[in-house]
Structure formats: structure tokens, C-alpha cells
Design a binder for these strands. Structure first.
Lengths: 332, 332
DNA sequence: CGCTTCGTGTTAATCGTTTAAATCGATTGT
DNA sequence: ACAATCGATTTAAACGATTAACACGAAGCG
């Protein structure tokens, strides 16, 4: 692990100054063919690779963007991150990934580290309802997925309200009488908005909102399983259910299978977020879904735009439309 | 987006030298209570965050580790990356993520960028069979998943041969007569080794290797679908199949469902890599699986170890054992 | 009293780049 | 013939931290 060669070394061997070396590397000034060739030879022979730390320090840019999410193993994130990465790579930026495990304290710590690394922009899916640590940072910021309410921020969202509204309306439209929902934590925008959408759909079609058919749960598979079980303990049982998150969908479906319920005869089922498995299970699951890869691209493009415009632009919000994919698990 | 305060600023306002400021920040020398408090106050009031670029430049370390994979959206990676991240975070390192899209040229380019960022270590799942660009880099290096053959490198692998061997043996043991395999690209170690394991299992139990029951495919869902279709066109049809990768598993299962085959009556099915959906489909799929999160942790721990020991240690290989999870899709 | 020791702080060089300003021949125009 | 111009290159000052070496007054000691 010997010391890496520097621009000094290259310059000395080539018999020129570092300024000239810098100029051939960056094509920033005319350098005569002769010396240029000589320098390139030396670079090659030394395996010289410029030190970007020094460059960044001097230039005050790092081409580094931070990503702060709860858990990459949550199936929602991978396609989104892929889109982000593609978008950043296209523009010569690199991604530095931090996971918060949905812990706001970890989030705050990671934020400090990222800022000390002088990231040029940051993309965040909030860990929890705490968001004060983002208040006065002067680095371009884009929230996505779990976003703060304040509209002083840039956001890339999905239309959570609409997703639940459309899903629930579809179930009502197919004449299910007792439509239940597995809802998420109410301190998260994604939890709240989806529940509102569900309620609104019921009210608009003249139904009553019956709290017995609302189960508020953490976004985990185990909670989905348990929540579904409790919903099926109601009397009368619900005849349709909307599960408002991918983990809840998985858990709920699991329970219904285990307990021997027939879908959609005993209960109609509408899930959240698509996966290739959704078409394979029996019956294929209807879902409300979003174009995750495209969302990722949009997030990446937005942060790049902000970096380029030095954060001068007013805050924007992009909201993606939900798509209802009807398969066999509910009326069609 | 005003200029960020520097240590100079802090020092000037607090009426001390930068040396002293540095010393209170890093707890590296005795500083009297009074001045320490004063300095901390100034830091607080300025929202001063140290510039890690400068620190890294001077200290010659970045606490940055690179990760080079083909595609985070491949379901194999997320749990592994989670394990890696946890392991790195525990030791104060950050992760910089690059995707190669299985393109060796992109891989080489990304490698250069990462090296110029002076990452302290690099973890790689190879893009293809080209690996020469890793030959002379003097940065600690760990390969995983898709690894080079040479044992001059550090690797965290799975026992690919054994996985296929155990799986195939299980199928043979349950008296299936015509065991087929959906195998992967033969220029990748993971493709080759799994096919070898399959063949070896057949030979050892006195069976013949029949190339009609071997379909060599790219690792994609579409190829799995197509490959399974062709296998079922053989006469006589195979009565069992081992799909040697998660995407192939998905595609093959999809085809069998679509075509109306009954599992395991018409054909026994053994998949690769576990997912929560595997227990939900009908019938629940038997699989050969690995502890992905733990593998990630091991990868992270290994690279940290190498960084700490300055790469003095001899090359090591850790190989994880496959686990056979028997569900309803094949003899049990 | 003179000498060492100790606790606090400061000075200034350094890490590896970039770049404005300066330098230096050679060429050009009149 | 002489100033002006031009192209190629060098000089040297940043960027924002760390840290060895040093400075200085107070305290300890025989």
C-alpha cells in the first residue's frame, strides 16, 4: 500500500510545473503537443489518478449527493434508488447512501456527517415525524415518499390520498358492502393521507365510516398479518379490504391464505405496490401502484436541477398519479 | 446559499487560534474549561460544521467505502447492502454506491472515479467476466457474489456448487426421474458452478446427464419463462426442475402457472433464493437460500478488517453454506 | 533564587489540487 | 529597430483542516 503518486510527481518527472499538468488533465488551457504527450506518458506510467479531495477542496464542489432512507431492504426503495442512480450518473454525480432504520436520531447524525462531507444535494425519505434538523441547512434538499407537510420544501410524492380514494372507490363500485382498510401510522403523511382517501371515498358514495373496519398498524408484515386477523374477527366480517402499504399487503394476504379464506369469494383484496410476484400468487393480486423507477429518475433530476440553479428556484412538488391494476383478487 | 463558516471564522470570533479549535473539536489536547466553552458556543452560534474534505486531505483517510454492483433492483442485493451498510456504519464508514448495469466498461469507469475519490476500500460484484482493471489497484478489495476465479483476491461467496448439488440431490432422492435445470451464463462463476453441482449430483447417483434437460439462460425473468417453456417441450417432459437463480425461478414459475401445469404433480419445483412471497404462492416454493443479511455483514466486516490492517493480510475466502428449505413444491 | 516541569496556546508547514498573475521568447506590425 | 502582441509555461497563493515544534507564565523544588 505505497503512497499514491501526486501531480507533483508527474510534474517533476515530466520536467514541467503542476500548473501545466493540471491544464492537460482538464483541457483548460493550450499546451503544446510535445509536452502534452510527454505528460500523458508519465501519467500512464505512474498509474497516476488525480486526488479528488484536493480538487473538491479547491473547487468547492464534490459531485456527491446524499441519500437518506430508512431501509434499502424495503422493496419500495430498490427501483427508486435505481432511477436516482441512473439520473445522477448521467450527470456525473455519485451517490452516498445512509440508512436510518426509521430512527430520527440516527437521521440527524447521518445528516451531520453528510453535510461535513460537503454533499451538494440531499434526498430524504423521512425517518419519522421529526423534521426540525432539516430546517436551516443551506444544501439543496428533496424529500420523497415520507415527506414533511410544510410546502417550503421540494418534494416528489405520490398521490396518497388519490391512491386510497381510487382503490376504495373501485371496491365500492363493485358492490362490496363492508370495505375495510389496513392503514399505516397516523403520524406519517403516507399513513394519514391514505386513510383520508379511504374515508372520503366511503362518504362520497354515501357510506358510513365504520371504525371497526379500520385497523391502524405499523408498516410491517407481522402487523399486516395481525391486523387482517383482527379485521376478520369483526361481525359481520368485511367483504373487501384495501391494504395501504406493501408490507401490510404481504402480511394480510398471508393471513387470509393461512386461515383458508377464499379470495375474492370470501373477501375481495386490493393491495399496494406492484411486484412480479403479484401476478403469480393465487389469485393474482389487484394493486394500486406507482412508476417507481420513473419516480427515482424524477427525484434525481430534481436534485440535479437544484444544485445547478444553486437553490434559487422556488420550492416545487411533483406528485405521481397512482395506477389501479385490476387482477383477479377483487371485482373486475 | 452563503459561504459556510470555517474553522478560521470560529477561531477569529472566539479569539483563539485554529489549532485550539481543532483541539476542542477532536478532544486531542487539554484545553482549559473556559476557552473550550467559549469555542463551543461560537461553533453552535455559527452552525459550524467541519469540512471533512480538508480533514481527509490532510489525514489521508476518507472513511469512505465503495460498492460496485450491477443493479440494486435485483432482489438479491438489497438485503446484502443492508448488512453491508450496518456493518460500515457501526465502524464510522460511509458507503458510496455505483451501479454498472453489468457493463464492464462502466465498471472500469466507475472504478476510476471511486479511486480518485480515495475510497479506503472497495466491494465488488463483478459486472462480467472482465476483471483486468482490478489487477493492480492498491486499495483493499473484496469481491462477492460474482467473483473472479483467481485466489489472489478476497472473496465472500456462496457455495454455488454445493447449492445446486444439494438441491439436485434432494430431487433425485425423492425419486424424480428426469430432473431438469435452468442454468445461468457459463462465463460467470455463479452460472458455471451451479451447473456443475447439478451434473455432479446426477453422476454420483448413477444418473446420466441429458443435455435436453439443461437450459442455459441469461439471469432474467423473461429468459426463465422462455427456458421453462422449452424444457416442457421435451419428450418426455422433465418431472422436476431446479431453477438456479431468483429471476429464473420467477420466470419459470410464472410459465408453469400460465401453462396450467400442476406443481408438484406434473413437475416438482425447486427455486433459488428465498423471499416472503415464496410462502404465499400456491404451492409454497421450496428453495435453496442463503443468509443474505449476514453475508452483507461479513462483507462489510471483511473490508473494514482489510482497511484496518492496511491490506497486510493474506487473501481470504469466506463461503456461506446453502440452506435447503423444503415447502410444498417438491417431494418432502 | 535559579532551574525544571507543567499546562495552555500559538505559529507555521503541510496535504494535493486549481488558477490568476507573472514571465519569457518569439513573432508581428510599422 | 522597437514596441506590442501572442503562446506556452511557471510562480505562488489559495482551499480548510491537522499537528509538530515552539513560546510563555505559573508552579514546584532543592
Amino acid at each position: 500500500m505505497k503512497k499514491k503518486p501526486t501531480m507533483q510527481d508527474v510534474a517533476a518527472i515530466a520536467g514541467v510545473s503542476t500548473a501545466t499538468v493540471s491544464n492537460v488533465i482538464n483541457n483548460t488551457k493550450n499546451v503544446s503537443e510535445g509536452t502534452k504527450r510527454k505528460i500523458l506518458e508519465v501519467i500512464e506510467s505512474l498509474d497516476y489518478i488525480p486526488n479528488n479531495l484536493a480538487k473538491s477542496l479547491k473547487m468547492r464542489d464534490t459531485k456527491l449527493i446524499g441519500l437518506l432512507i430508512s431501509d434499502i431492504a424495503n422493496p419500495f426503495f430498490p427501483p427508486v434508488v435505481r432511477g436516482i442512480e441512473d439520473s445522477l450518473a448521467e450527470n456525473g454525480y455519485n451517490l452516498i447512501l445512509c440508512e436510518t432504520n426509521s430512527d430520527s436520531n440516527l437521521e440527524r447524525e447521518n445528516l451531520r456527517v453528510l453535510l461535513s462531507r460537503r454533499i451538494e444535494g440531499l434526498m430524504v425519505s423521512l425517518a419519522g415525524s421529526e423534521e426540525s434538523h432539516f430546517e436551516n441547512i443551506d444544501t439543496p434538499l428533496v424529500f420523497f415518499n415520507r415527506v414533511p407537510v410544510s410546502d417550503q420544501y421540494n418534494k416528489v410524492q405520490v398521490k396518497n390520498f388519490k391512491a386510497a380514494y381510487v382503490g376504495t372507490t373501485h371496491l365500492i363500485g363493485h358492490d362490496y358492502k363492508r370495505v375495510a382498510i389496513l392503514a399505516g401510522p397516523q403520524h406519517l403523511n403516507v399513513g394519514r393521507d391514505r386513510l383520508f382517501g379511504y374515508k372520503e371515498a366511503l362518504l362520497e358514495s354515501g357510506r358510513e365510516v365504520d371504525s371497526n373496519y379500520i385497523s391502524i398498524r405499523e408498516f410491517t408484515v407481522a402487523e399486516g398479518y395481525q391486523g387482517m386477523k383482527e379485521l376478520m374477527n369483526q361481525d359481520p366480517k368485511p367483504d373487501a379490504v384495501f391494504t395501504s402499504n406493501n408490507a401490510l399487503t404481504l402480511g394480510a394476504f398471508q393471513f387470509l391464505k393461512d386461515a383458508g379464506y377464499r379470495i375474492p369469494q370470501d373477501i375481495a383484496f386490493l393491495g399496494y405496490d406492484d411486484t412480479q410476484w403479484a401476478t403469480i400468487v393465487d389469485p393474482p393480486i389487484s394493486v394500486v401502484r406507482y412508476p417507481m423507477y420513473e419516480m427515482g429518475q424524477a427525484i434525481g433530476a430534481m436534485i440535479i436541477g437544484l444544485v445547478r440553479s444553486r437553490g434559487q428556484e422556488p420550492s416545487r412538488t411533483i406528485a405521481f398519479e397512482p395506477e389501479l391494476v385490476v387482477r383477479k383478487s377483487c371485482g373486475c
